[in-house]
């Protein structure tokens, strides 16, 4: 009797732990390994046949198609450099440069993966559209209120994340964080 009870508890525990971990890792978008630079993370391997099972489960569940490594690499920022989650009611500044790439795009998404809706119908910039400083660096103001220069409206949404996609870039699986891979800083300003 005690054996039966023991195994029942054991199996219940196994199911709870196993399914719980799976649910958590897929819904939170947990991915193994990857490249982290400041607030930015990338999974260059997700664009190859060697994609890790976690990334694979996430893309299958969400119905997305990752960018192939021969095409480009996607960097995501869900927080600012200090670790605060990105809030559409705050001013956020992207400042600096990106690793070498023929083109890049910066796009804002809601946590559900939709584009941010706003009256300007602008949800991102391509590298060619940006107004740059003399040294080639750029500054993008993200926030609810109109800003001079490169402004990306958030429409005041509570949460969003930024995808910075590099196209035709030497950044790949071998890339490590360092001087060769500068990423723009993500700093939070005033909140409303």
């Amino acid at each position: 009797m005690r054996l039966v009870l023991g195994s029942l508890i054991c199996f219940a525990l196994a199911a709870a732990i196993g399914l719980g971990l799976t649910w958590l890792s897929v819904s939170r978008g947990f991915t193994a390994g990857g490249l982290t630079i400041g607030a930015w993370t990338a999974q260059p391997k997700a664009g190859t046949a060697d994609i890790d099972p976690y990334s694979r489960a996430v893309i299958e569940r969400n119905g997305t198609l990752p960018i192939g490594i021969g095409d480009g690499v996607t960097f995501a920022a869900r927080t600012d450099d200090a670790g605060h989650p990105l809030d559409g009611r705050c001013d956020v500044m992207l400042e600096g440069t990106t690793p070498q790439a023929r083109f890049f795009t910066v796009t804002l998404y809601t946590p559900e993966g939709n584009l941010i809706s706003n009256i300007l119908k602008r949800s991102g910039f391509t590298s060619q559209e940006l107004i740059r400083n003399g040294d080639g660096s750029f500054r993008i103001s993200i926030g609810p209120k109109v800003r001079p220069g490169n402004w990306l409206p958030t429409g005041g949404v509570e949460r969003y994340f930024i995808l910075l996609r590099l196209y035709d870039t030497p950044v790949g699986i071998q890339t490590r964080a360092g001087r060769e891979t500068p990423m723009p800083s993500v700093t939070r300003g005033a909140c409303r």
């Binding site: 054991c10 196994a14 199911a15 709870a16 732990i17 971990l21 799976t22 299958e60």
Partner: peptide, 21 residues
């Protein structure tokens, strides 16, 4: 019981992650 449960849980987790796609 706890230990075996945790080990089996790990197996269930890996199995479901691999099977999910």
């Amino acid at each position: 019981v706890l230990f075996i449960g945790a080990v089996l849980g790990g197996i269930v987790h890996l199995g479901t992650i691999l099977y999910l796609p």
